[in-house]
Nucleic acid binder design. Sequence first.
DNA 1: CACCTCGA
DNA 2: TCGAGGTGG
Length: 339
Amino acid sequence: MGSDIGDIVSRESVSFSDMQNRTVAIDANNTLYQFLSIIRQPDGTPLKDSGGRVTSHVSGVFYRMINLFEEGIEPVYVFDGKPPQLKSKTLDERRKIRENSKEKWKKAKARGDTEEAYSQAMRSSKLNRDMVAESKELLRLMGIPCVQAPSEAEAQAAYIVENGDCWASSSQDYDSLLFGTPILIRNLTITGRRKIPGKDRYKEIKPEKIVLEELLNKLDLNREQLVDLAILVGTDFNDGIKGIGPKTALKLIKEHSSGRKVLEVKDIEIENYSEIREIFIEPEVTDEYDINPSDIEWDGVVEFLCEERDFSEDRVVKGLDRLEKAVNELRHQTTFDSF
DNA sequence: CACCTCGA
DNA sequence: TCGAGGTGG
């Protein structure tokens, strides 16, 4: 997923108080996919309503949004548009992996290997159109603004942050930095624990912040050079060069000052090099976005979750109580501050 | 993922 | 009171 430059990106952990009263542009498809793959039964079966429709993503959106509001964070969801043509190979590969994992999941489940079943089920998850539409509907009912990107959501989110309309963008991938987001937040989760697959241990997951300018200063690169570096290592739009990881790529870029020069000296060719660079440096984005929250349709949320998706009314009402309190406090503070 | 329960 | 483990849909 995305480009593999994590090794050279210095992260600092960020507390929720640092994010209070701030707007965050969330990479919607990335987040929904995360929910879909993680919110499962121990054997890998996703949550489903009585009609057999998967509801893991819906559950994830509902609870995560309440928690963010309670932390004083205003979310904006940014959805992917049409993927660039150059991504089709990556998307094809992902589809093959999913199909393969689906088989492995069935087999593991059949022989009672729960651990393996869960991990294969995660890999086999596919976010489909209906799931995206359902999530948008719930977000709309919860008053959360949704932005439709013309192409890559991370590019649009970066643009929104650059324009000063959001404080930071949030995604698990580092690509947002290549698209130029001034601030990237990773692991925007509350319960900071994730099971290590195959082991009986848990890993602490904490939100982390990456400031693009600080990163570039530290690496002593400009943004174009960072993009060049990522392309050498590999992105969603090209395979990396064998034997070149982020550290070697960093050294090479510094030595030769540009990716093109590195390719020239090393006599390597990367197909569609200019086009890939352009995707990151001049991404396709739109100015037609609205990040203003709308009124929460309380009854609509209950109807959507309880009547249509079999959520327990108890839980939903409890959640909405928390949401109401959190939103009142957040909006009250905002009004207070503006005087 | 986040919530809830139950046992130490 | 806390945290591991089960459940939600």
